[in-house]
Design a protein around this nucleic acid. Structure first.
Lengths: 343, 343
DNA sequence: TTGTAAGCGTTATCAG
DNA sequence: CTGATAACGCTTACAA
C-alpha cells in the first residue's frame, strides 16, 4: 500500500485536499502555477493515489475476472496471454481463476471474483452447464458475463468459440480422403464441446457413407495426471486394436489428448502414420517438432480472446444489458496437415 | 458491482448499520436471534459486502501482483498455474501482468500493480536489472517483492530460482560423456540467467580440458516472432556448420530455443542425434513426443512457485521487513535423458 | 481560482 | 446486546 495521502500533501502545501486532488487531476479550475507546485511535491513524495478509495468513490474497480480450467495447458495459456493483452489495452486488470474442471472450485472462484468487485467475467466453464444457476443469477444481479471456448452452455449471453462441428468435419473428411475410414475419436469426459465435435464427426461419416461405430469413441478420464491419461488411452486403444475391426486413424478432440497420444502410440509400437494416421485439435507451436510432425486443427486463440473481451466491454458499457442482442460467435479453425496424416 | 448495501439491509431490518455489520461478521456482541434474522434478510437480497469499501477501511486489498514475461509459454504458464494455486490457498488474488521482455511495459505493469494496491509483488524481471531502481524504490516505499526464475538481479530480497550453473554443468557433462565436445549454446539475448548458465558450461569444459570456443555461443534475437527466432537460429547454425570446426551438439538455455531448434535442424537436414545431439532446458510435458524425443533439463516450477509465494508472505506478514534475513534459494533441476542425446 | 463538506460502503470505538 | 458516529482516501458539488 502506498503511504502518502492527499491529506498529507495538502498539509505540506498548505492547501485543501480538494485543491490538491483537482490539481493532480488537471482540473480546469486550478491555475497552472498551483498545478505545478502540487505535482512537484507529489512527485517528491512519490504520491500514488489509493486505488481503493478512488474506486470506492467512483464505483468502479477496473477489474475483470477470468475463469478457465487450467492455466498450464498451451491452449489455455495462449488464451490468457491474449486476454491479458486485450485487457491492458482497455486499461483493465485481469483477475484470474482456475476451476480445475471442478464445479465446486469454480463456484468459489466466482464468489471470489464477485466479492472483489469485478466489473465483468469471462468464463470457460468447468463443464457443460456447471454452476449454470449461479451464473444466470450473477448475470442478472452482479455483472455481465461472456462465455468463451466452452460455449455449449445454457446462458443467454455472448458466446465466443470455435465452430467445432465444422472443424472436426473437415478433419474427419481429411482422414477419409486419405483412405482412413476407421477413425477413433478421443474425447475428454464432461467437456461440453464434445457433443458438437462428435456431431461433425458423425456428419462427415454419414456424408461419405461410412458406418458409425460407437466403440470408436473413447472417453478419456481427465481428472488424473498426464500419466493417468496415458495409461487410460493405452488401455483403451490396445483393446480396440485387438478387435476384428481395428482402427487406422485417430482424431483428438483436445490439445492434451492429441499430443499425448503420439507418445502412447509409440510406446505400443504403432507407427504413425503408416498404421495409424493422427490429427487433432492442438494449439501448441511445436506440433511441427512432434514425432512425427502432427497434423493439427488450430483454434484462433488470439481472435477468440479479443472478441470475447470486446463483447464483454459492450455489455459493461451499456446501461441496458437486456436490450443488447447477444450473439454466439463461431470462429473458424485452420487445419494444418503435417506428417501424421501423410500417407 | 453488487447492489444491496448494509444501509439498505439495515433499513429493511429496522436496525442500525453497525448492528447489521456486526451480525454478519458474527460478532460476540450480537445475539443469536438477531444474527439469524440479519443473515436471512442478507441472503434473501443476496447481499455481498463491497470489497472495495471493506479493503479501504481495513487497509488491505488481498491482491498480489505477478509480473512475468509471457504467459503463453509452457514454462511460464506452469509457474503461473502453480502460483495461482498457492495464492488461492493463502486466500489472495493474483493480478497478473506480462512484461513481454520489455522494460517499458514492465514499468507500466509495476505502476499498475502499485496503483491497484497490491500487497506484494512476485516478479521474474524482463531482463537483468530491468527497472532495478524502480523496484528498489517500490520495495522500500510500497510493498515487498520477491524475485523468481530470473533472479540474477541486483535487489536485496528473496530470490527463488534454479541452480542454473549446476544444471547446465551436468547437461554439458552429459554431452561430453557421449563424446560430443563441440557444443553450441543457444542463448536468449538480455536474459539475466544466461551468465550463470554459461558459467556452468565453461566450467564443465574446463574440468574436462576442452577449449572454449566463443563462436559456439549463439545469441538468438528474442523480440521477434517464433518464425523470426527460427530464421535467426537457422542462419547462425548454418554459418557455424560451414566452418572448419562444425559443432556436434547443442545445448538450449530456454524452453523456446530448445524446442524450436529441433524443427530448424530438421529443416536444414541435420539428423538428431546422429549429426547433432541436443539437450536443453524445457518444461513442456511433450518433450517425450518430440522428434526425436528430447533430452531435457526440467525446472521445478511448482516448487519454485510455492516457495516464492511463501517467502512473499513472510515479508508481507512482518512489520520489520529490514530485519528479515533474505535468502537466495536455488532449486535443483532434473535431467531427463531421451533420444536426442542417445548415440 | 481555491476551500468546505458530503459521501462512497465498510468497520471500529464507544456510549447507551 | 444495540446504536450513533467517526474514519479509511478519494472525488465533486457547491460555497467563498
Amino acid at each position: 500500500m502506498s503511504k502518502v495521502t492527499l491529506k498529507e500533501l495538502a498539509k505540506e502545501l498548505n492547501m485543501s485536499v480538494s485543491t490538491v486532488s483537482k490539481a493532480l487531476n488537471d482540473s480546469y479550475e486550478i491555475s497552472d502555477a498551483t498545478k505545478k507546485r502540487v505535482k512537484e511535491v507529489a512527485l517528491k513524495h512519490n504520491y500514488r493515489p489509493n486505488a481503493l478509495a478512488k474506486n470506492l468513490k467512483l464505483g468502479k474497480t477496473n477489474n475483470i475476472g477470468v475463469i478457465i480450467s487450467t492455466i498450464g495447458s498451451p491452449f489455455q495459456a495462449q488464451i490468457i496471454e491474449a486476454l491479458h493483452k486485450a485487457a491492458v489495452r482497455f486499461d483493465f486488470n485481469l483477475i484470474m481463476m482456475q476451476s480445475q474442471d471442478s464445479e465446486e472450485i469454480e463456484r468459489k472462484a466466482l464468489n471470489t471474483l464477485i466479492n472483489h468487485g469485478v466489473e465483468g467475467i469471462l468464463i470457460s466453464p468447468a463443464f457443460e452447464n456447471s454452476n449454470v444457476d449461479l451464473l444466470a443469477h450473477l448475470y442478472k444481479t452482479a455483472c455481465p458475463i461472456v462465455l468463451f471456448d466452452r460455449i455449449n452452455y445454457n446462458l443467454d449471453t455472448f458466446k465466443v468459440g470455435v465452430d467445432n462441428e465444422k472443424s472436426i468435419y473437415r478433419a474427419t473428411e481429411e482422414l477419409i480422403k486419405i483412405g482412413r475410414k476407421k477413425i477413433v475419436v478421443l474425447c475428454g469426459k464432461n467437456i461440453g464441446v464434445t457433443r458438437n465435435r462428435l456431431g461433425g464427426y458423425k456428419k462427415a461419416l454419414a456424408d461419405y457413407n461410412i458406418n458409425f461405430n460407437p466403440s470408436y469413441i473413447i472417453y478419456c478420464n481427465y481428472n488424473n495426471s498426464l500419466e493417468g491419461i496415458d495409461r487410460d488411452m493405452e488401455h483403451k486403444l490396445t483393446e480396440l486394436l485387438n478387435t476384428q475391426d481395428p482402427p487406422n486413424a485417430i482424431l483428438g478432440t483436445t490439445d492434451t489428448l492429441t499430443t499425448r497420444v503420439l507418445g502412447v502410440l509409440s510406446k505400443i509400437d504403432i507407427r504413425v502414420p503408416e498404421d495409424m494416421a493422427v490429427i487433432g485439435f492442438a494449439n501448441t507451436d511445436i506440433a511441427n517438432s512432434l514425432n512425427p510432425s502432427l497434423s493439427t486443427i488450430r483454434q484462433p486463440t488470439f481472435e477468440m480472446a479479443d472478441i470475447a473481451l470486446e463483447k464483454l466491454m459492450v455489455l459493461m458499457n451499456s446501461k441496458n444489458r437486456s436490450q443488447i442482442e447477444v450473439q454466439e460467435i463461431l470462429l473458424d479453425s485452420t487445419i494444418q496437415l503435417r506428417k501424421s496424416t501423410d500417407i
